[in-house]
């Protein structure tokens, strides 16, 4: 497996007495889809917030391509090549779909280079060319979710953090998004995914990290993780086969 693009060492976030994330360490290998799973409240979204600098760490360190990024401002981390697609789509409602994606391209990694090409690529990979001129406020939920991804990849990131990109999508739409995520890896990107849809995670991931109550309880290939008794107990519980 290739060198890790992202390394988190002992990252911790406390909110008062509660440790939302406690001493979690992991590495994400380049050009893979790595998934972060765990029951609700396990700390997945907090980890995304920590990785993007939206919430400061209370302990530990984060390195992206060997450079410390904890403590940097959110937009600086984005400029280094870490993009995030939100769980709840946060479109710029008043702008057209194309302009939404263009903002990503203009302020992406290395600043504005080939903005038009990056915008078109984002639209194409997310399958949004047909609605590019429509205001974002008029899109369906599935289209909005894809626009989140398009906006993020227009920034030419090396690492895409995708926060439940499948939630609320029908099976066809899910498959489209999964295919485009795999397509991104094919183009040299790395994807870190938070997702609840287990079959989808098993299908798309190269590696799975399992969180429970703020701690990392398993880390390995999808088929190994599903057999891990701790995971079955903590997360899969009664649903497990």
């Amino acid at each position: 497996m290739s060198a890790p693009i992202l390394v988190a060492e002992g990252i911790t976030r406390r909110f008062g007495q509660l440790a939302a994330v406690a001493d979690v360490s992991f590495a994400v290998a380049e050009r893979t889809v790595t998934s972060l799973i765990g029951p609700n409240g396990a700390g997945k979204s907090t980890i995304f917030n920590l990785l993007t600098g939206y919430v400061p760490l209370t302990g530990g360190r984060i390195a992206f391509r060997g450079t410390r990024i904890d403590g940097l401002a959110t937009h600086r981390i984005a400029r280094l090549g870490v993009a995030r697609a939100f769980q709840i789509a946060r479109p710029f409602r008043g702008l057209s779909v194309r302009d939404n994606v263009k903002v990503g391209a203009l302020y992406g990694r290395d600043g504005p280079r080939d903005v038009a090409a990056a915008t078109e690529r984002g639209l194409r990979l997310a399958g949004l060319e047909a609605v590019a001129e429509r205001p974002a406020a008029e899109l369906t939920i599935g289209q909005l979710r894809r626009m989140e991804v398009a906006r993020a990849i227009a920034a030419r990131p090396d690492l895409l953090l995708a926060d439940e990109p499948l939630a609320g999508l029908n099976p066809t739409e899910s498959d489209e998004v999964l295919a485009s995520l795999r397509g991104l890896v094919g183009e040299g990107m790395t994807v870190l995914l938070v997702e609840h849809d287990m079959p989808a995670v098993m299908k798309v991931s190269d590696r799975v990290l399992v969180l429970d109550a703020g701690r990392l309880i398993a880390d390995g290939r999808p088929e190994d993780v599903t057999r891990d008794p701790r995971v079955i107990e903590a997360y899969l519980g009664a649903e497990a086969p």
């Binding site: 993007t52 937009h75 995030r84 008043g94 302020y107």
Partner: peptide, 24 residues
């Protein structure tokens, strides 16, 4: 210009703009 798109993004959602790399 690029600045204009940054400002539009701020107008629509300042937090999201920041996370997209806009130096708000």
């Amino acid at each position: 210009a690029r600045l204009g798109y940054g400002l539009f993004a701020i107008r629509e959602d300042e937090d999201a703009a920041q996370m997209l790399g806009v130096p708000t």
